[in-house]
Every structure is written in structure tokens, then in C-alpha cells.
Design a binder for these strands. Structure first.
Lengths: 327, 327
DNA sequence: CAGGGCTTTGCAAGCGCTTGCAGTACCCTA
DNA sequence: TAGGGTACTGCAAGCGCTTGCAAAGCCCTG
């Protein structure tokens, strides 16, 4: 293992200078700095994070708290964050809180002091704890806005307005919303966006709260038919897929008789058959953006914007269209 | 933050003794030891992992390499490993290798020295690199057996033999296997187990290799029908679900005309409608077992057994049954 | 040209813990 | 009683890096 001392010797500088060339480059003359960096490259040097942590308090470890890994929605977000961390020579430790607020609090206190900061994906629960925590530790909230904290969200509401616009143009007026899990922060936002953009002439039929699963989508179909909706918007593609599946089963044609669309896109899963109309976004970008914001926070630089929005674009599939006049 | 020095002072011993009471308890008189432990409790002391790492080389960080997070198969495995790590006061960092052997090698070399050990889930690629790597670093291989390395696998082959037994008893003779991704180590094992247990009177029709996705399952249906199989065993439930879905679409009744079963169980995803016959196992147990084996390795204790097997039990669903005589 | 300020670099003191070595006390055997 | 163990404890030297402080060199201003 090459040490910083080796690098310093190779570059003909003292250890202090070599150290500063890496962590406070602005304090070193550019010519010296490049000599050091060249030596770093040549010797394949990587700082020993333990040694750095001991003096600076920065461990190079970042924790990401997610409620579960079973929902594939989180997977690419984690992957994106992890890559961004790796690019910055940091590690990401993923902590599953299993949706329990108590466990989340436990984890946060246990880890703070061992990690430099947190990316918290907490779709449920109240703002207060998060706010209090974020006041003392660098933290970025994902897929949720907590006033006063840095956050990164997907702009699904904007995408939903586009979707509603299209449905309205196609002549849909009764739209069912298969809502997400109980207490989901995003769910409320989506529901509001739908209702608002549907306008006074439309009617939003909310079905749920529902677990975001294939089965729940299938089971919701009866309700959809009972309420005579001509279009269904689901909280995520698992629900949408379940609905399409069950509609097939009971002999309802999609999209001729009912249109189906989804707010979250789980296409990466290979869950895309048939092509469901969805909102497409870059989940890895979400993770990366969160990590970048967090690293600014950790380094004491102000984040570019407090609330980053990742665009969600309407992606037309074969499950939406003009409703048949006889329905 | 309380330091070890505080504990030592409170217990009336030197720092060395306090340190040993924690990491080498056998070297300290039991009366002294309990005084130290009492002080630790009272002051709420936690060792500073960075400081410990600096001298002892043990960072308390363990890396888990998975090919991807998009496949929900890995999610509960990771969660299980993470919980086991947490219980042992260690952190788990998840690294996604995106299936590339080069990237995997990169990650392994970059991380070794920063982590105490590895859990490697490498369903594809050759043994040689893994073997070489495992010779120099504590490592446990999951879902694969590499002779000479410690590994933990799910005993799907045994489960598949049970499944085949049932299919044969039901009168199935032509069984299609929707195989997994190209180069998958497990896939070969499963295919062999099926063929062998199907016996000389049966015929195994291998379709694939296939990506383990819903869509691929749907698209494989035509081939299944062409080859006149009466039963389908899929590499995982995503494939099975896609097949069931498409069989419905083309008007083939399940299980009256064709039985469908799956080797991997992704029920946690909510992908269980309708109830597909699968092999059920405890994926979190896999992760936890791997982590426990790894910790033994790290501590220099020999692992209990070199190759741990997690049982996979046949779970009957509504998608298998006696084939109709007219098919 | 003296003095002040700025930039760049080096010195050296740790950060909190582990561990090789040495010292002390005590017990056992011959 | 001397010699040799054994069991326990303390001393002190780091582990690899960061950072406050100070020195050195330079440019500018008055």
C-alpha cells in the first residue's frame, strides 16, 4: 500500500503539501499541485479513509436509508447514488428501515458520527423528526420535500398534468386513480395534481390506499369497473400491470374500453409488456443528484438549489387511447 | 464523544487494559473486565472505528457485490446481510457491478484494504478470478459454488427434483424449461437437475437463454406451444408470470392445458397473482448466512461448513395440475 | 527602502486506538 | 529457598493522515 509519504517523496514536497494538494487544492500552487497529482496517479495512491477520518472526522462513508428493497423502484436510485459516491471516492452503505419510523430513528442516531451524511428516502411519516435530524447532520431527502431541508424529487406532478391533458383531449372524464401505500407523501401530491388538472368537468375516483403490488392492481379492477371509469392512472407500474392483467382476464379490452397509465415507471424491471403508458424519468439520476447535493452539504458548500426536480416525461404506450363511445 | 481514555479512567485501569477488555477479553482478569464493561455501559462508549482501523486494519466495513439491483431477487438477500452486519456492529456497503467482470475486478481491488471482506454474488463468469481473489481476502460467494472458497447457496436443485417428481406423478412428460440469463452458473445447475430428475421417459425442452424478465416470459410462449410441452418450469417468477400472462392472452388455460412453475420465488414483490407454483426459500436467511460465514472468516475462525445450503421447499400454487388428456 | 500583506510551503503535534514488550505479583515445583 | 512459570497489567511507540502555526519569499504601497 502506497502512503501519502511516498507520494510526497515522489513529488518532492512535504507531506503537508501533498495532503493539501488533495483535500484543499486551492491552497497549493498549481504547478506543485499537478506534480503531486501526477505522483498520485503514477503510484496508484488512494487515501486511507481511516487515517483521514481520525483527524478530519470525515469518514468517506455515506448512508442511504430506504424503507425496503423489495420495491424495485429504489434499486436504480441506489445504484445511481452508489456510482456518484464511488466517483467521489466515497462509499455508500445502504440501510433498510423496513418502513418503521422507530427503526429509522435508531439507525440515524447509531450511524451519525460514523458516516459523513445521509440520503433519506422516507416516503411516509411526518416532517418533524426529519427536520430535527437534518438540522444537526448533513442530510438530503429523496422523493419528498421537507421545507428547510435539501431534497431531490421526481417531478411526477408535472408529468401527471401532461398525462391528464392527453386523457382529457382523448375525451376521458371519469378517471380512476389507484393510489399508493397509506401515508405516502408522494401519493398525496400525485392525487392532488391529478384532481386539479382534471378540472371541474372531470371526476377523479380514488381507489385505495393500495400496496404497490401486481396483485393489488388486479384486485382493484372490480372497483374500477363498478365506478365506470374510462381511464385508470396507477401509482406505479406494478399496480398498472396488475390492472391490465385482470382487465384482460375479465374480458375488458385495453385501451378500447379502458385506458391504463402509470405514474412510476418500472420498465427497467422488464415489466413492460404490454407497453403501458407511463411517466418516464431517470431514477439513477435521482440517486446521483441526491448524492451530489449531499456532498456539497458535507463540504460546506451551499447546494445549487434546495429542491432539485428530476423531470418526468410522458411516455405513450399502447394502453391509452380514445374511449369507445358505447362505454 | 467519550473516548477509551475516559472509560479507562472511570474503571481505574490503563488504556491498554481497557482496550484489551473489549477486543481480547481472555487476556484480562474477569473482575477487571467487568469493571471496564460497566464503565463502557455507564458512559455509553462506542469504539471509534476509524481509530481502530488505523492500527488494527479492521475497518468494520463489509462489501457486498451484486450484479444489479433491478432484479428483485437480490433485494432480500442484501437486506438479510445488512441486518446481520448491523447486529455485529458492522456496516455493509453494496456495490453494483452491472454484470461486467472487468468492473467487478476493478471494484474488488479498489475496495480491498478498505473493507474487511466481501460477499460476492457473481452468477456469471468463470471461477478462476474469484478463486484467486478469495485466496488473498476474506470472501464468501453467494448463489454459486466455487471449489476452495466458502459459499452459501439455495438448494434449488433439490427443490426442482421435488417439483419434477410432482409433475411426473401428474402425468407430465414434455417439460419446457425457460432458462435464465446467458452464462448463469445456477441456470446450468437447475437445467441439469431438471433433466436428470425427469429421467429417460421425460423430455426437457430448453428455451433460452432468456433475460429473467416478464416480457421474455411472454415472448417464450409461442415456442412452448410449438414444442407441445404440457408443463413449463421457469428460471424465475418474472419469466413464469410473463408466460402465464401470455398464455391467458392466446387463450390457453392454466393449469388445465399447461402447467407453469417457477424455480425462484419473487413473491415478496407482490408478483404472486395468480399463485404460481414455486420453490420457496428464505432469501434474507441466505444473506444472513453469508454474512455470518464471512465474519468467521474475518475473525480467523473456520467457517462451520464450507458450503452452506439454504433449503428450497416446493410451494404448490394454482398454476400446476394434471394435464388434459387431449393435449 | 522599510513595512505590511499575501501566497506557498514545511514543521510537528496530535486524532483514538492497538499491541509488542517489559514489569510485577503470585504460585508451583524441585 | 531458589528458579521458572503463569496471569495480569502498564508503558510507549506508532498506524497514516490533517492542520494550526510559523517561516520564507514575493509584491506592493507609502
Amino acid at each position: 500500500m502506497t502512503r501519502l509519504a511516498d507520494v510526497a517523496r515522489a513529488a518532492g514536497v512535504s507531506m503537508s503539501t501533498a495532503s493539501r494538494a488533495l483535500s484543499r487544492p486551492d491552497l497549493v500552487a498549481s504547478e506543485t499541485r499537478s506534480r503531486v497529482l501526477e505522483a498520485v496517479q503514477r503510484l496508484g495512491f488512494h487515501v486511507n479513509p481511516a487515517a483521514r477520518a481520525l483527524t478530519s472526522g470525515k469518514t468517506g462513508l455515506v448512508a442511504m436509508c430506504v424503507p425496503t428493497l423489495s420495491n424495485p423502484f429504489f434499486a436504480p436510485i441506489i445504484a445511481g447514488a452508489q456510482q456518484a459516491a464511488e466517483a467521489a471516492d466515497r462509499h455508500l452503505t445502504v440501510v433498510v428501515t423496513e418502513g418503521s419510523a422507530r427503526r429509522e430513528a435508531e439507525v440515524l442516531t447509531r450511524l451519525s458520527g460514523q458516516v459523513d451524511g445521509f440520503i433519506i428516502v422516507a416516503p411516509r411519516g411526518g416532517d418533524a423528526d426529519l427536520l430535527e435530524f437534518g438540522a444537526t447532520t448533513p442530510a438530503v431527502i429523496a422523493e419528498r420535500v421537507v421545507p428547510g431541508l435539501t431534497s431531490v424529487i421526481i417531478d411526477t406532478p408535472a408529468g401527471l398534468r401532461d398525462l391528464t391533458g392527453m386523457l382529457k383531449a382523448d375525451g376521458h372524464r371519469r378517471v380512476a386513480y389507484l393510489s399508493g401505500p397509506e401515508g405516502s407523501w408522494m401519493d398525496r401530491l400525485r392525487c392532488d395534481a391529478l384532481r386539479e388538472s382534471l378540472g371541474p368537468n372531470g371526476e377523479l375516483i380514488v381507489i385505495g390506499p393500495l400496496p404497490p403490488t401486481f396483485r393489488a392492481g388486479a384486485e382493484a379492477v372490480q372497483g374500477i369497473l363498478d365506478r365506470r371509469a374510462t381511464a385508470v392512472v396507477a401509482y406505479n407500474s406494478l399496480l398498472a400491470l396488475g390492472a391490465v392483467y385482470q382487465l384482460h382476464n375479465v374480458g375488458v379490452r385495453v385501451p378500447e374500453q379502458i385506458s391504463v397509465a402509470s405514474a412510476d415507471d418500472l420498465a427497467a424491471l422488464g415489466l413492460g409488456a404490454p407497453e403501458i403508458t407511463t411517466l418516464r424519468f431517470d431514477p439513477a439520476g435521482l440517486g446521483a443528484a441526491a448524492m451530489e447535493a449531499l456532498m456539497r452539504l458535507i463540504d460546506g458548500r451551499p447546494p445549487a438549489v434546495p429542491h432539485t426536480r428530476i423531470p418526468a416525461a410522458l411516455q405513450l404506450g399502447s394502453t391509452t387511447g380514445r374511449p369507445a363511445t358505447d362505454v
